[in-house]
Simulated assay, not measured.
Amino acid sequence: MITPSSPLLSQRALQRARQAMGCLPFTWRFYQVLEEEALSSTGLVSRPDWGELFCCHPLAASRIEDHFIWLIQLGVLRREVDGQGLTERVRLTPMGRDCLTAWPEAIPRASLPQRLHHWLRRHRPRL
């Protein structure tokens, strides 16, 4: 029986998160910044350097927020909390830091079969 603290479950979660990070358009630098500071999707889009440093291609704030929600579900990101509750800003989780240790400087882009598998896992999880 697999318990929540089982190493097998942790390894599967890490593998799933790493695959997602390779399929999403965010760069290694983006996750490094999230380790140091919290960002929101609108704050990210308003940065003058976001397109060249943090993302492989331009995205709207709503699409970035969709990716944030997916990364939160996978355990890579978490919402930041202030005195009034959850905010729209996200930060890197310890699991997200563990994922980054696998790559010293850049996240390798996923192959086409990996991207398809990721898309099915994300959009059609019950198939």
Rank of each mutant, 00 (worst) to 15 (best):
L39G: 01
V81R: 15
E105T: 13
V90N: 02
F30V: 06
E52T: 13
L71C: 08
S41E: 10
F30M: 00
C56Y: 13
Q114E: 15
F26S: 03
L44A: 10
E88T: 15
A102H: 11
S40T: 09
L53E: 09
F68I: 02
H57D: 05
R115P: 03
L120G: 01
W28A: 01
L59N: 05
Q15D: 10
V33I: 12
P108N: 13
E35M: 07
P108T: 08
E52K: 07
T27C: 07
G51P: 08
C56H: 15
L71I: 01
M95E: 10
Q114K: 09
W28T: 07
F54P: 00
I69Q: 01
L34S: 01
L92S: 03
A106D: 15
R47H: 14
S62N: 09
D49M: 09
Y31E: 02
D82M: 10
R78C: 13
H118S: 07
F30E: 00
Q114Y: 01
R115D: 03
E35C: 05
R79Y: 15
L92N: 06
L74Q: 03
P104R: 14
W50V: 10
R78E: 15
V45K: 03
H57V: 11
L39K: 01
L14T: 10
R16L: 12
R91E: 08
R89G: 04
E37F: 13
C99N: 00
I72T: 04
P48A: 12
L39W: 00
L92P: 01
L39Q: 02
H117C: 04
A13V: 13
Y31S: 00
A102N: 08
D82H: 09
L120T: 13
R121F: 09
E52N: 11
E80N: 12
L71Y: 05
V33D: 00
L39R: 03
T101M: 12
R78L: 12
T101K: 02
R91Y: 06
Q84K: 12
M95Y: 03
I107H: 05
G83R: 14
V45Q: 07
Q84S: 14
G85Q: 03
L120Q: 15
R91L: 15
